[in-house]
Amino acid sequence: MSEALVQLENLNLVLRASVHRPWSWRDVFVRTLKNPLSLWPSAGDRLPIIQDLNLEVFAGDRLALVGVNGVGKTSLCRCIAGYYRPTSGKIRIKGRVRALFDVAVGIQPELTGRENAVLLAELLFPEEKDKTQMIEQALEFSELGNFLDVPFRLYSTGMQTRLGLSMAALRASDVLILDEVFDGADLFFREKIAARMRELVRDSGAVIFVSHEPEEIKEVCNRLVVFHQGKILFDGAVEEGLRFYRGLKPLVQK
């Protein structure tokens, strides 16, 4: 068996987030009469995002992570990428993780696309010593032409996506996380970037791919995990996994 690049052991992520509720002085008065202790500030509402999750991702795995909106797929990816610290449990990563979430983000809207590309290269690839060539390669790939020297704030969302994706798709990684990265690109650029992403996926050690597009998943992935309410409900082959996921409809629509 190949080497595990990502190991999640009994992983839990719980956020104590205060949930905003509409209130009135009358409600506070009535609640205080009923229970004076309710005035004491609470520690916040408990939002369990990931619950006792165990998962191993091996070299060569192209793992599709599917689930309905809001079940915690992105939070799980952010845990693996090091954004969130787990509440309990362990994450072991072997190698470098590169995670791509929403890439249509301008770092400095006043600066030109070209200048933003230079900055993005520093943020995304700090390990690269000479970045000139890779930046030129990405700028050419983006096909933004003269717009590269126009302030980023004047770009449309599609143009921002082109620049962001062109930069983000420059280097493979030991563990590559792609979270709905194609959103925002036009049809023609989408085909072009999809081809580039396929190369990126081929050259990376393990890939975690979050998508709602079954065709994209079938094309890219060789393993599928169905994630629901913080837990893994299915882990196996892609076709079977997609059938299982479709079967969740009654559960989700309850």
């Binding site: 090091g82 610290r85 993780v97």
Partner: peptide, 8 residues
């Protein structure tokens, strides 16, 4: 050496 462990 690039093994990274993340705990709470």
């Amino acid at each position: 050496s690039s093994l990274v462990r993340r705990t709470p």
